[in-house]
């Protein structure tokens, strides 16, 4: 392990800046509330012995300045989704740093490790998740207890997740992948309806679209707005609305072409 350079030396400041920015970027990429992002960055800087850190978190970038503006940097946030493992890990590392269980160097290293390989569930577990989510939510939302639709919703949910996963590799634009997933789901649901007329495509789609419906993103955005982070609140609500439009246009296209 390298020795930590003397406090307030140029190197030390650079490390503090880099650590704070990485932590903030990871938390935004994981979909944390903005006040928590700023709070965590602030805490890391203060625990590193900086007296007057200033931070600003936005949905597409984080800023920090130390030492009255002598050191200032920003970092862009390119990818945003909801990945709570990131939020939990950064939070835990920051707690350990506050409790002096980690040195600044170790914190920086561990954050970089988290950034490169976030532990995530394997695809088959996610597929089971999508299947269970689609079928159970269909029953809860419609309140009709129509059991023939139950396996169909599970199937359509899995198809949607697979399509989303495949499309994500083709294109960097998230809305495009969401639209493709919606198209696949609607096509399968309506196709199933043609095969087995007892199934109701509306109910199936209500359940299985919930895998992607940005209700949670919208609530998150509103919480940001209410707590005063206006820029990130507005940006996030626009993002949620765009997702809804992508899903809607995907389903709508299929409905127009295949009928209902």
């Amino acid at each position: 392990m390298k020795d930590v350079p003397a406090s307030y030396s140029h190197e030390y400041m650079q490390i503090v800046i880099d650590t704070c920015l990485t932590a903030g970027r990871l938390m935004i990429a994981g979909g944390s509330e903005m006040y928590r992002v700023e709070d965590t960055m602030m805490r890391i800087a203060k625990n590193a012995g900086i007296k007057d850190p200033r931070v600003f978190g936005g949905p597409t970038g984080v800023f920090i300045s130390l030492d009255g503006g002598a050191y200032a940097q920003l970092k862009q946030v390119r990818e945003r989704n909801i990945n709570l493992e990131l939020v939990a890990q950064v939070n835990e590392l920051s707690r350990e740093f506050a409790a002096k269980k980690l040195s600044l160097y170790e914190l920086q290293e561990r954050l970089n490790v988290v950034a490169i390989m976030t532990p995530s569930f394997p695809l088959w577990i996610q597929l089971i998740g999508a299947a269970v989510l689609s079928s159970t939510l269909m029953v809860l939302f419609t309140g009709q207890y129509d059991w023939p639709d139950f396996p169909a919703a599970a199937l359509v949910g899995m198809v949607g997740l697979l399509a989303f996963d495949g499309a994500k590799r083709l294109s960097k634009i998230r809305f495009l992948s969401e639209m493709l997933a919606a198209i696949a789901m609607a096509a399968v649901a309506i196709g199933l309806h043609h095969l087995f007329p007892i199934l109701k495509p509306d109910n199936i789609l209500i359940g299985s679209l919930m895998t992607f419906v940005p209700g949670v993103a919208l609530v998150n955005a509103l919480r940001d707005l209410f707590s005063g982070d206006l820029i990130s609140g507005i940006a996030r609500s626009v993002e949620a609305i765009l997702t809804a439009v992508a899903l809607g246009s995907g389903v709508g296209l299929v409905m127009k072409f295949l009928g209902q």
């Binding site: 709570l84 493992e85 976030t118 996610q126 998740g129 269970v132 989510l133 159970t136």
Partner: peptide
């Protein structure tokens, strides 16, 4: 449904 959504968004 809550647990399966948690699986999808990668909750520890």
């Amino acid at each position: 449904s809550a647990i399966s959504f948690a699986l999808l968004i990668n909750v520890p």
